[in-house]
C-alpha cells in the first residue's frame, strides 16, 4: 500500500517536493489562519452548547485541514456539499460565523447564507449527499459551466449504498464531481478497522473505475494539492475522483456523545501530536519566520471575531411560529396558507 500523499510530517518537516502554492508564505498563513478560525468557532460552539445556548454540535477538532484544504482549491463556480463536520470549508467559502452559529443554534435561517448561494447546507443523513453531488455535477455539466461538485462524507458513510451508487454513476457518466472522505477513524463508536475490511477507503473507487487517492488529511498542503489536481481533471472533462483524507477525530462524535465509553485516552493522545495546526505552525516558523507575535495576533483576532459572531447570533430573535409553514412551498396550498395565518400571532 502506498503511503498517503503528504508534504509536511507531523512535526512540520517537509517530506515531499512542495507544490508551488505551498512555497508562498501568504498562502500558508491564510490556510493556517483559516484553521485557527475554524477551531476557535469549534471551541466557542461547544462552550455555547454546554451552557444551553446552542443545539447539539458536531466538532471538527483535528480535522480542520480537510475541508479548508478542499475549499482553498475550489472556485466560485464550484458547488460544495458538506457533511456536518466541515465548518472550516464552509467558512473559507464565505459562510459567516454568525450563520453557522445560527444553524447549529437550531434556526433554518443559518442555511440561507448570503454566500456562496449555490452551496448545499450540511447533510445530516449520512451519505445521502453523494447522490446530490452527482446531480449537481450533472447540472453543471449540462449547463456548460466550468464548476465541479465537491462533497465530503465520513468513513462511516463509505459503508452506505448511497456512497457506492453515487460513485458508480459519477464514473459511468464521467461527471465533474470530487468525492472526499473525511476518515477520522471513528463513526460514533465504530472504529475504522471494524467499518470495513477494505485496506483503504480510497480503494473503494476501484470498483467504480474512478481514480482514488489517499492523502494525509492532517496536512493541509497535501489535501489542497490532491484537490487541485482532481478539480483540474474534473473541470477539463476528464472525470471524477475520490480522495480519502486520513485524519483523527480528537473530540466526541457530537456534544451528545461521550467517547470515553468506547475509547481510551491512551488511544487518543498520540493523535494530538499529529493534528493539523501544529505541523503547519512549525513549518511557518521554520520556513516563513512565523513568530510568537504573529501567533498571538491570529489567535486573538479569531477569538474576537468568533465572540462577536456568537453575540450577534444570540441577539437574533427566533422566527415567528408561522415560519415553520411559510417556506414549505413556493405557493402554499390553501390549508397551509390558512394554518400560517392562524399561527401568525404566535
Amino acid at each position: 500500500m502506498p503511503e498517503p500523499l503528504a508534504f509536511l510530517d507531523a512535526a512540520g518537516r517537509v517530506v515531499g517536493d512542495l507544490p508551488d502554492f505551498a512555497r508562498d508564505g501568504d498562502t500558508l498563513r491564510a490556510l493556517y489562519t483559516a484553521m485557527v478560525r475554524a477551531r476557535a468557532f469549534d471551541t466557542k460552539a461547544i462552550a455555547l452548547q454546554r451552557t444551553g445556548r446552542l443545539g447539539t454540535y458536531a466538532s471538527s477538532l483535528g480535522q480542520e485541514a480537510i475541508s479548508i484544504g478542499l475549499a482553498s482549491a475550489m472556485t466560485e463556480d464550484d458547488v460544495f456539499l458538506p457533511s456536518f463536520r466541515e465548518h472550516g470549508g464552509q467558512l473559507w467559502r464565505g459562510v459567516t460565523l454568525e450563520e453557522l452559529f445560527l444553524y447549529w443554534g437550531g434556526d433554518e435561517r443559518g442555511n440561507d447564507f448570503a454566500g456562496p448561494r449555490q452551496d448545499f447546507p450540511v447533510c445530516i443523513p449520512v451519505a445521502s449527499q453523494f447522490p446530490h453531488a452527482a446531480g449537481v455535477a450533472l447540472a453543471l455539466q449540462r449547463k456548460g459551466t466550468p464548476g465541479v461538485a465537491v462533497t465530503v462524507g465520513g468513513d462511516g458513510a463509505t459503508s452506505k449504498g448511497d456512497f457506492y451508487e453515487a460513485l458508480n454513476v459519477i464514473g459511468a457518466w464521467m461527471l465533474p464531481a470530487v468525492f472526499v472522505i473525511n476518515n477520522n477513524q471513528w463513526a460514533i463508536s465504530m472504529p475504522r478497522t471494524e467499518q470495513t475490511h477494505a485496506e483503504t477507503l480510497a480503494d473503494k473507487a476501484i470498483a467504480a473505475g474512478v481514480p482514488g487517492e489517499q492523502v494525509d488529511g492532517n496536512d493541509v498542503v497535501a489535501v489542497r494539492a490532491a484537490a487541485e489536481r482532481a478539480l483540474a481533471r474534473a473541470r477539463a472533462g476528464e472525470g471524477p475522483a475520490l480522495i480519502e483524507c486520513v485524519s483523527y477525530r480528537l473530540g466526541d462524535h457530537t456534544t451528545a456523545d461521550d467517547a470515553s465509553r468506547y475509547r481510551d485516552e491512551a488511544e487518543v493522545s498520540p493523535h494530538w501530536k499529529a493534528e493539523p495546526l501544529i505541523r503547519l505552525r512549525n513549518h511557518l516558523v521554520v520556513a516563513h519566520g512565523w513568530g510568537k507575535r504573529d501567533e498571538e495576533t491570529v489567535l486573538r483576532s479569531c477569538d474576537a471575531e468568533v465572540d462577536a459572531a456568537a453575540e450577534a447570533y444570540l441577539a437574533i430573535a427566533p422566527e415567528p411560529p408561522r415560519a415553520m409553514i411559510t417556506h414549505l412551498f413556493a405557493t402554499l396550498p390553501a390549508d397551509l396558507a390558512a394554518l400560517a395565518e392562524d399561527l401568525a400571532d404566535g
Binding site: V79, L81, Q118, F120, S128, F130, P131, H132, A133, A134, G135, V136, A137, L138, A139, L140, R142, K143, A149, G161, D162, E165, A166, N168, V169, A172
Partner: peptide, 26 residues
C-alpha cells in the same frame, strides 16, 4: 441522450440526483 438519459440501476441515485440537479437549475 443528453436530455433523455438511462441511469445505472439505482433508485437512490435517480431520486438523489434529481435533488442535486433540481437545486442547480435543471
Amino acid at each position: 441522450s443528453g436530455r433523455v438519459r438511462d441511469t445505472p440501476l439505482s433508485e437512490t441515485v435517480i431520486a438523489g440526483m434529481a435533488v442535486g440537479a433540481g437545486a442547480t437549475g435543471l
